[in-house]
Design a protein around this nucleic acid. Structure first.
Lengths: 335, 335
DNA sequence: CCCAAATGCTAAATCGTTTTCGAGTCTTAA
DNA sequence: TTAAGACTCGAAAACGATTTAGCATTTGGG
């Protein structure tokens, strides 16, 4: 590998001069700067990120915390998309991304320690149990952080508009003539709470009363539990005409048991998902769902993080909310 | 951040001694070693990876090349799983992973340059157009490399057993009484070629002849093209009784148009996917498909790469093949 | 024509480690 | 008693860059 020293030798100047030429400093003559840059290019020079990091304390690396209990954030298309979003945005701004975890090899470290070890310039946190003490530690560590789909005091966060999301979904179902709208919601998290509250509020607004038994909990992407919950709803004496699921995947699982019971979608019962997975669009009948703008979620997070890193003065803590939109399929029947 | 220098000061020894204690060298007394380690722990010492990288030329970072033309490798559940696999295996061996690309910020660099810039210890290449000249350059750069689902001369690779995969699928269909088995295969790549050859060979073995029109091409995960190809097959005067798709996603798209044509799965026509996506299992009817052991694919790749990195002497170039297995759903009818 | 300021460049320190080599001390055997 | 090993330990160089402070040289104003 060719280093600044090599270039300096070849150009008969000092390494300081080379460094300045390479970084476009002003106290260097135009000709010398151009000459050095030309030579550097010709010699195939590329900086050594470790040396730069050591000297400047900047790695141009951003950490990403991205694992749920089951450790399968990547299998979830929504989160895969947000990851994709932060990746492309970060890269376009000159940053690489590094996964942060707490068991690197034999030694275990906290998330914060891992961040310091790798010297990441900032971290985006998503798809994780935000109540872990380690997360709290990280958020308070002084490292620039932005969270996705969770808000901490004094930390900028970008969140999907879950309130508007289920509101739009409920309104859509209502506009299709549904009044008996059940809601299988995700397990405890701020996202789930927002959605649930919005469900209640919207129904209230519409002057619709639903029995308590219409509201059931089911972990995200838990096909088995979704099946069980669906059976419970089908057994209701006043059976709902429309079911909202926590996500598209559980919706598909629900559809599966509904059809196994000999009922048809949407003729006998309507179903609605959440997320806007590619499968939802491709299947028959196409699933009506709320398409989250997952990639934009990720891009916003990365963009704000870089802003905080590069212009800390100008960065105020913000709540960015990105809206999704209902994707009308054929899984909801007009009553 | 506390450095070895701080520890040295606190312990009244030299930094050299601290370094030796921390790294378990032998030329240091047992007591002093234990003492220094205790102090280090108490002071909350963590090494600085940049400094170590600079000095030792080892980053404990492995690069991962993971993008297709559409730049959406992550949306593909199969590849998400292999990524997950390399991630957990790498992490368990003490390595972080870094995405490699060629437009980092304003400056563009080749994959090889990016690898040198970040100083990754090795690279795993997957989900990419292996014919790109940049890939060839990287493979020949001297950086330890392992490829997934593609073999290069003199490079160790881990590949999914595509030959056995479609063979098992075809045999299964045959065992269910199918003779008119169509194959919509992926676009050009070594994976597609293996699968196609295996399809022909297995039919040959079974003494089954299929018309040329039964074999159609369709890019992976291209729902629209899959729909088009499906319609073509349905229009055949000698309509196939069973269709193999390039992947589960296109299979779902195919099912969709089949049902829109008023045909039933599997009563009127049987369909088979490839990959074993979670959706395939959850939907109704459950899709018969070949479940690739995607995570193991990734784990193997990472494991072999680390072996090459840490014990170059012992590392011979290998072809590791990992088998999948047919996952029987309800989408194939017994004739 | 002289002094001050601007310009162009370099030497050297520095970031946090690892590693070599030599030096000092202590055993042990002849 | 002494020479030769074993043990311990530390000084210093090195990795590849950035950055500060200062030295020359040139320029411009009065």
């Amino acid at each position: 590998m060719v280093s600044v020293k090599d270039i300096a030798a070849r150009c008969n100047v000092s390494v300081a001069t080379v460094s300045k030429a390479l970084n476009g400093y002003s106290d260097i003559s135009r000709e010398k700067r151009d000459y050095i840059n030309a030579v550097a290019k010709e010699m195939g020079y590329f900086p050594n990120s470790a040396a730069i990091a050591l000297k400047t304390n900047r790695t141009y690396n951003i950490g990403i915390l991205f694992l749920d209990a089951a450790n399968n954030g990547l299998m979830n298309e929504h989160f895969a998309r947000v990851l994709q979003g932060v990746k492309v945005e970060a890269e376009s701004r000159g940053y690489d991304i590094t996964f942060i975890n707490h068991h690197i090899g034999a030694r275990t470290m906290t998330y914060t320690e891992h961040c310091h070890y790798r010297g990441v310039d900032g971290v985006v946190i998503a798809c994780i149990d935000f109540d872990e003490p380690e997360i709290i530690e990280l958020v308070n560590s002084g490292i620039p952080v932005v969270t996705i789909d969770h808000v901490f005091h004094n930390i900028t966060s970008v969140i999907s508009d879950n309130v508007k999301g289920v509101r739009d979904l409920v309104l859509y179902a209502h506009s299709m003539g549904h009044h008996k709208i059940a809601f299988i919601h995700g397990d405890d998290s701020s996202v789930s709470r927002d959605r649930l509250a919005s469900y209640y509020r919207t129904l209230d607004e519409l002057n619709i009363k639903v029995p308590e038994s219409y509201v059931l909990v089911c972990p995200y992407r838990d096909a088995e539990m979704a099946a069980k919950r669906t059976k419970q709803l089908l057994a209701e004496k006043e059976r709902p005409t429309c079911i909202l699921y926590p996500d598209d995947f559980t919706a598909v699982s629900g559809i599966s048991v509904i059809e196994q019971e000999g009922l048809r979608i949407p003729e006998d019962i309507s179903v609605i998902g959440y997320d806007g997975n590619s499968y939802a669009r491709a299947m028959e009948p196409a699933l009506t769902t709320l398409a989250q703008d997952s990639e934009v979620l990720g891009r916003c997070a990365a963009a704000h993080l870089v802003q905080m890193i590069e212009k800390p003065k100008t960065a105020l803590v913000e709540r960015v909310v990105v809206e999704g939109k209902v994707m009308v399929g054929r899984s909801v029947k007009k009553l």
